[in-house]
Computed example of a mutant assay.
Amino acid sequence: MVLEDENVASVGRPWSNLATHVLELISSQLSPSDRPHFALTCKHWNSAVGPTYPADICPLLLNCPRWGSNVIRYYSPYFNKNFELDCPFDLSGATLCSSSNRWVMLGWENKIMLADPITGISHEVPLEEVILFSQYGFFWDPTTSKFQIFGISNGGYEDVDIGIFDGESWFWSTYESGLPFFLSSHSNPVLCRGNFYCLGSGGELGVYNLEEDTWTVLMTKPNKFSYEECYLLESEGELFSVLIGKYGLPLHVLRLDECEMMWEKVEKLEGRNLFLGSLTSVSSNSTTLESMENKVFFPRFHGDVEVIRAEVKYSSGRAFFVPKMNGENKRKDESNICWYSLADDKFHLKYFVSKKYVNSIWIDPIVASD
């Protein structure tokens, strides 16, 4: 009997029966891409593996629930969750002005800062002797890590003040077009094939040619459409405008016909989805996400979104939101983001009764750093 007991003791507990807290500790040290393989070992191991959420599936809504708290959230329309991260810099008194890729442009009364909330890298932009523009377009090139800022304000009935920051210094001047132009308050300037485009409140299109240093107003008014809000965005080298009526309806998606320089209505987004409602609007290719295809998303919600305390980790060339161990997650009632389907020609939930995220801006999906 003694010999049998010793043999049993030498065998020990089977791997499949390891304590749950031990498995959780092991899985927390694995890379996000290795966790699914770990979970396939057996049912017990699978139950101990926490979820991971790819951050590169679709655009994200960066939102700041409490200014001054140094906490930011990334809402994923695909997972319908808010991932809350610690912010590496002070956000007190800041305004979200623009975004490009995963970078954001933050504005204070006396300074502008370009920042990557994931890495904590930031660049302060000098404002000495420069007027404060009413709208900014911020453009960051991930291939060169260079950035450019385009600022514009109405100087008069037919005048605009335009400034360009090339990463080192500002250049600005006043331009006259001979035509009235008043900036839309809903949409930042966009960069398309080397030109900066600005949407007027009446649907006009202002174009600044950097190479020729010229400002032109194109009378491309969509007169046959009535609307209260208008947004401008670039997608795969094309310009789109989205017009929204009072209380969200009607909604029209227009593409610029550059041959005729007129807006034409679009019935299908051809594998795209659009993300509007903040100063920066973005688009993405949705051919791999049929559930999101041919839809327009807004930073408006019905109910409260679940909040998960997380951090961003990289694995196998991808970025993931990984929940923190012992993080204080905030489960809310079932919530849904407000979106419009071009296929059905309607909102899936009422636009005008939804709650808008005020301190928010759309950013591109988070991809792994080089």
Rank of each mutant, 00 (worst) to 15 (best):
Y314C: 13
R309V: 11
R318L: 07
S281F: 07
F321T: 02
V282W: 06
T288A: 14
S286A: 15
A310V: 04
F320A: 06
S283M: 12
R309L: 09
V282F: 06
P323T: 04
R309Q: 15
V312Y: 04
V282Y: 05
A310Q: 03
R300V: 03
F301C: 05
S291Y: 06
S283R: 10
A310Y: 00
Y314D: 09
S283W: 07
T287R: 13
E311V: 10
S291A: 14
V322G: 01
G303Q: 08
L289G: 02
R309T: 13
R318G: 01
T280S: 13
K295Y: 10
P299E: 08
N294H: 10
E293L: 15
V312Q: 04
M292N: 01
F301Q: 04
N294V: 09
P299K: 05
S281T: 12
S284R: 00
S291Q: 14
T287V: 13
K295W: 12
V296Q: 03
H302F: 09
K295S: 11
S286Y: 04
K295A: 13
E306L: 10
R300N: 06
R318V: 03
V322M: 04
F301K: 02
T288Y: 12
V312G: 02
L289Q: 13
F320D: 02
F298I: 13
P299Y: 10
P323Y: 02
N285L: 12
F321M: 10
T287L: 12
R318H: 15
T288G: 03
I308C: 08
G303Y: 09
V296Y: 03
M292D: 01
V307N: 03
A310N: 00
G317A: 08
I308V: 15
S316G: 05
S281W: 05
E306P: 00
E290S: 14
G317H: 07
L289T: 10
K295H: 14
N294E: 12
P323F: 04
F298N: 04
S316Y: 03
F320I: 05
E290K: 14
S316Q: 13
T280H: 06
F301L: 12
E293D: 15
V282K: 00
G317S: 09
N285M: 09
N285D: 15
R300G: 01
G303C: 09
F301S: 01
S283V: 10
E290H: 13
T288L: 15
S315N: 06
R318S: 14
V305N: 02
R300K: 15
F297H: 06
S283F: 11
F301G: 01
S281M: 07
V282E: 01
E306F: 01
